[in-house]
């Protein structure tokens, strides 16, 4: 564990807490892509179900349980109590176009040809693009609540710091994970436009609004 990875994980954790606060405080999930949330739940289930047979550390176990539990909670809330506040008409990204290629890539690129390894690869590829429905929704509406942008910023910051973590790990322990690196690079790159608006508008006290 190094400081970059720790802060990255904490940002990831914070992003979910921010999302939960937004949903509780406003009693609404408007502006949040239901598709992205379902995809994240799929990502966590595909990758973290190994919590039952692959022990890494108490920290690792706690985080896996936390992410599966909160993602389930968010999807449950969006299906039930907060259903009517969903931005359905804007959440129009075709999820098939990212799930199918992710599955195909996982069948081609994996460390070993086993069910768990292919699921792991699938989850990594899917996570890289799971934000697309959310960014699409943002583009459709052209603006976002400030708290929603904080959620996205924490989520993007988490992956950006993982890039730094990988560089650090490569030099300190010779750690190499080509699949995660490529996917992580794509994942972080997708946030570029968002970050530009976030830094130039939201952090200066203005509303998030696309030009």
């Amino acid at each position: 564990m190094n400081i970059f990875r720790l802060v990255a994980d904490l940002l990831h954790l914070a992003s979910i807490v921010i999302l939960l606060i937004k949903m509780y405080a406003t009693n609404s999930c408007s502006g949040i892509s239901f598709k992205t949330q379902v995809l994240y739940l799929a990502v966590f289930i595909a990758r973290y179900l190994d919590v039952f047979w692959h022990f890494v550390s108490v920290y690792n176990t706690f985080m896996k349980v936390f992410f599966i539990a909160t993602a389930s909670g968010v999807v449950w809330a969006m299906l039930g109590p907060l259903k009517d506040s969903r931005s359905k008409s804007l959440d129009t990204f075709r999820w098939e176009f990212i799930v199918a290629p992710s599955a195909l890539l996982a069948i081609i690129f994996h460390d070993r040809f086993t069910v768990t390894e292919i699921f792991w690869s699938f989850s990594v590829f899917l996570e890289a693009v799971a934000i697309l429905p959310q960014l699409h929704l943002l583009q459709q509406s052209g603006e976002a609540e400030t708290i929603t942008t904080h959620y996205l910023a924490a989520l993007g910051g988490y992956r950006a710091l993982y890039l730094v973590n990988w560089i650090y790990r490569y030099f300190t322990e010779g750690y190499v994970d080509v699949i995660a690196w490529c996917a992580g690079l794509v994942q972080t790159a997708l946030y570029c436009d968002f970050f530009y608006v976030y830094f130039t508008r939201v952090l200066q006290g203005r509303r998030f609004a696309l030009p």
Binding site: R5, D9, N60, N165
Partner: peptide, 10 residues
């Protein structure tokens, strides 16, 4: 063992 340290990240 190599398998034990694999996928130690979240």
């Amino acid at each position: 063992k190599e398998e034990d340290v694999k996928h130690d990240e979240l």
